[in-house]
Design a protein around this nucleic acid. Structure first.
Length: 405
RNA sequence: GUGGAAUUAGCUCAGUCGGUUAGAGCAUCAGGUUGUGGUUCUGAGGGUCGUGGGUUCGAUUCCCAUAUUCCACCCCA
């Protein structure tokens, strides 16, 4: 038997209903916030991700599905969604056009990681990106939108917030931090030794307890923000307070992708195991110019759909449509004609095998139909169809000519 | 990429200190005097015990490899 590749799942029946419900709910909310759908390719030039996500990141360093195609192009399956949207934004010269551009998207992403619960090699994200808005109100809008989506789906969360600073305050802070890490000498773990040179800010996020004890006295970026970043961060907190969105400041929160600056946030759930980040995002004002566009402020976020799946509270399902069946082989012909008429306005599912009334009623239950319609000996004699409303428990005999005229 | 656990019916799981017909619940299907469901009773079907090797008279059970899932790292959505 051939099976799907490791970490790549099929999504079917009830799971797909949840999946579809999520997409519909999230898309509706994104549209209400004024965002438009954008579809970008799953396959992009490898350089796009090296320049945007950053070569020092694990995503680019060791998790990409990268290969040389038949035309000798170095390509890879997208490991995240932002880079492609920014590429499209620049390619279609929206940066030069100016103004505000707001997009949302959803689709498959690929990362060659060791799978576990909530971590797949092919997974799905729903994300939004906003271009051209400098105001921190847009950052707040992003967070409110995620909060709205999670609320609509009945999902509880904790919101972590941090500011990563901008090009004025980040570099000087970075130097102070590296000096601090140097002062710790060899007492820090191997991972941190490595991170010291690749992405020093990540050491703050180290899960090693010994390291955490040392870092308690590490300089915090939040105390070294420049005036602009500090005031934006304060404004953001005020807006969230006004909208009753709870948050916790997490000075160790560092987004894993290199392109973030200023606002960084992460929504986490305590009910889904160790892969607890359900949404993450922040501001990335420098990325557009990194990708050869005209400098444009931007913010965005992405939600991990698979991580949300089991947390989604589905609305109660209501009985819907028709189940039609024959109790006699010759009754199948009129049943099919009735189904065709019903289908013009309702869901109508036909059982082809002649069965007892009892079996048909059970069949109607199984597909959660509102009505069970059958034709047997009696109905054939009267040229009619028997219809039972399974909710009201009423039944009637309808002449075939009057059924869905 | 590192360390560990698991894999038996469609699903959730028992079980065999290696022995001939591998079990349960749920689900499916069929019946309960001839046409009334979701909440009853009875019965039936369904498993080369993840895959490939090895040890053995004999392996679902022991050993090795491999695949997948899960847990902890790592990382991130």
């Amino acid at each position: 038997m051939i099976q799907s590749l490791r970490g790549m799942n099929d999504i079917l029946s009830e799971d797909y209903e949840r999946f579809e419900y999520f997409i519909t709910t999230a898309s509706t909310i994104a549209k209400r916030y004024g965002f438009h759908y954008i579809e970008t390719p799953l396959l992009e030039e490898t350089a796009l991700f090296k320049r945007s996500v950053g070569e020092s990141s694990d995503i680019v360093g060791k998790e990409m599905y990268q290969f040389i195609d038949k035309g000798d192009n170095d390509v890879c399956l997208r490991p995240e969604g932002t880079a492609g949207v920014v590429r499209a934004f620049v390619q279609h010269k929206l940066d030069k056009k100016g103004g505000i551009h707001r997009f949302y998207y959803h689709g498959a992403m690929f990362r060659y990681e060791r799978p576990q619960k909530g971590r797949l090699r092919q997974f799905h994200q729903f994300g939004v990106e906003s271009f051209g808005v400098d105001s921190v109100y847009e950052d707040a809008l992003m967070i409110m939108m995620v909060a709205d989506i999670l609320k609509a789906l009945g999902i509880g969360y904790r919101l972590k917030l941090n500011s990563l600073g901008d090009q004025n305050c980040m570099p000087s802070y970075r130097e102070k931090l590296i000096a601090f890490i140097e002062s710790c000498g060899d007492t820090i773990c191997g991972d941190c030794q490595r991170r010291k040179s690749t992405n020093p800010i990540r050491v703050l996020d180290c899960k090693n307890e010994a390291c955490q004890a040392l870092y308690a006295n590490a300089p915090k970026l939040i105390n070294h923000l420049c005036e602009g970043c500090q005031s934006d961060f304060d404004t953001l907190k005020t807006i969230l307070d006004q909208h009753n969105i709870g948050y916790e400041i997490d000075t160790h929160l560092v987004r894993g992708l290199d392109y973030y600056s200023k606002t960084a946030f992460e929504f986490v759930s305590d009910n889904i195991g160790s892969q607890s980040a359900i949404a993450g995002g922040g501001r990335y004002d420098r990325l557009i110019e990194f990708l050869d566009g005209k400098p444009t402020p931007a913010v965005g976020f992405a939600l991990g759909i698979e991580r949300l799946m089991e947390l989604i509270v589905m609305p109660e399902t209501v009985r819907d449509g028709y189940y039609l069946g024959a109790m006699d082989a010759v009754a199948i012909k009129p049943i099919l004609l009735c189904a065709e008429k019903a289908r013009r306005s309702e869901k109508a599912v036909v059982e082809y095998e002649p069965r007892s009334l009892k079996a048909h009623l059970k069949g109607a239950d199984r597909i959660n139909a509102r009505y069970c319609a059958v034709i047997g000996e009696n109905e054939l004699a009267q040229n009619s169809i028997w219809v039972k409303d399974l909710v009201e428990k009423t039944e009637s005999l309808i002449p075939l000519n009057d059924f869905f005229v």
